[in-house]
């Protein structure tokens, strides 16, 4: 009887926790003037963001003063496009950033920019030849892939804000 009572109590507590209204995080009006200025490109998207996303952006505003002027311009120019991406696209971009940018020595950044410019100059068909998983794909299969539409994007194992 007591076990049943305790189980009921725990079930009630769990139900209450789940049924509680979801915390949407800080409102735009509650941000400081500096935070609003840094995050100005996100103002229209702010109400739709999750609490985790908002906390992350507020964290980024704390790093903002330490950034170089050109980095400050870049992040403000890019943040709106970033929030418009799907969680899968953001995950993919982070994974590629980890595997590309973090392995390149600072003195080779210029070379990386040149590679990107070179890649940009390829035709869409040529680019598609490289749109493959990292593992080796035989040339015949690559040619086949060129004719096929793009593969579905990989799903992230967990979601980051």
């Amino acid at each position: 009887m007591r076990t049943v009572f305790a189980t009921l109590l725990l079930a009630l507590a769990a139900t209450a926790a789940v049924a509680a209204p979801k915390d949407r995080g800080p409102q735009w009006a509650s941000l400081t003037a500096d935070q609003q200025q840094v995050l100005a490109p996100l103002q229209s998207d702010w109400p739709r963001m999750s609490k985790e996303q908002k906390v992350k952006w507020i964290g980024i505003t704390k790093r903002y003063p330490a950034m170089k002027p050109e980095e400050q311009k870049r992040i403000q120019a890019r943040m709106q496009n970033w929030v418009k991406l799907t969680p899968e696209q953001r995950w993919q971009a982070r994974e590629h950033y980890r595997s590309i940018a973090t392995k390149v020595a600072p003195d080779r950044k210029e070379q990386l920019r040149r590679y990107w410019a070179e890649y940009q100059s390829l035709s869409p068909d040529e680019k598609r030849m490289f749109d493959v998983p990292p593992s080796y794909v035989k040339p015949a299969e690559r040619r086949q892939r060129v004719k096929q539409p793009k593969q579905e994007q990989p799903k992230p194992p967990f979601s980051l804000p």
Partner: peptide, 8 residues
Amino acid sequence: YLDRGFEA
């Protein structure tokens, strides 16, 4: 970083 072909 969104272009999967760039890494290859």
